[in-house]
Simulated assay, not measured.
Amino acid sequence: MTNSGNRRVRASQKRQRLTAAAARVLHEQGVERTTLADIAREADVPVGNVYYYFKTKDELVRAALSEHGAHLDAFTAELERLDDPHDRLKALIEAWIDQRDMAARYGCPTGTLAVELDKRADGILDAEVGVVIRRLLDWAGLQFRELDLPDPDDLALTLVSGYQGMSLLANALRDPGIMTREGARLLRWVDSLRPPAGNR
């Protein structure tokens, strides 16, 4: 590889480190409390270099949203390896339960960002958070549709609302057990939607 090729690879890796760091730090500290220096420190990049890749904090927030979206896409692609949509939905819920300690400490990464950005006057970035949440709703709706259930989009809304609610309460009360209990309730709900064996 040429020197210029090596430089491009290193620049791409540095940008990716900054993007991943932005997603983590913004989740843990929130937009207002996070500085570019915090993200540079987390990414192990000199703070002066941050401005080469991201001119403003909003650009870093946008990159963090992109990271959340990419993570969601990779995770749902992994779930698609399961043959049964019921199993995919239950694996999604189990993954939420597995994140109970993080949810109790910081809340849902996308949900908390949505709430914080909604308070801003420009209304641009909060709409972009909505795009990420919509992707989860659409994916869940597709699972319910594959199960040939009525009102699949409403079922998806119920599922994602349940997740957002339990994340918010676990965070507000600093109680990861809420994720465990409410997650178990969601698992039972999904099971209740499975038609009896004789009706399949």
Rank of each mutant, 00 (worst) to 15 (best):
S12N: 02
R15F: 00
Q16K: 11
R17P: 06
A20Y: 00
A23C: 11
Q29K: 15
G30I: 08
V31L: 14
V31Q: 07
V31R: 12
E32M: 10
E32T: 15
A37P: 00
I39N: 03
E42G: 02
A43G: 02
D44R: 12
V45N: 06
N49M: 06
T56N: 03
K57S: 04
D58H: 06
E59D: 11
A63M: 08
A64C: 05
L65V: 03
E67N: 04
H68G: 01
H68C: 07
H68V: 00
A70N: 13
D73V: 12
D73Y: 06
D73Q: 14
A74Y: 08
F75D: 10
A77K: 14
R81T: 15
D84H: 08
P85E: 02
H86D: 11
D87C: 14
D87Q: 15
R88V: 14
W96M: 10
W96P: 00
D98G: 15
Q99L: 11
R100Y: 07
D101R: 07
A104R: 07
R105Y: 01
G107R: 06
G111Y: 08
G111A: 13
G111P: 01
V115M: 08
V115A: 11
L117G: 08
L117T: 11
G123K: 01
I124W: 00
I124C: 04
V129S: 09
V129N: 02
G130C: 01
G130Y: 03
V131P: 00
R135A: 13
D138Q: 11
W139T: 00
A140K: 00
R145C: 01
E146N: 15
D153E: 12
D154F: 03
A156V: 03
Y163M: 12
G165K: 03
N171L: 09
R174T: 09
I178L: 06
I178G: 04
M179H: 06
T180C: 05
L187S: 10
R188Y: 06
D191G: 10
S192L: 14
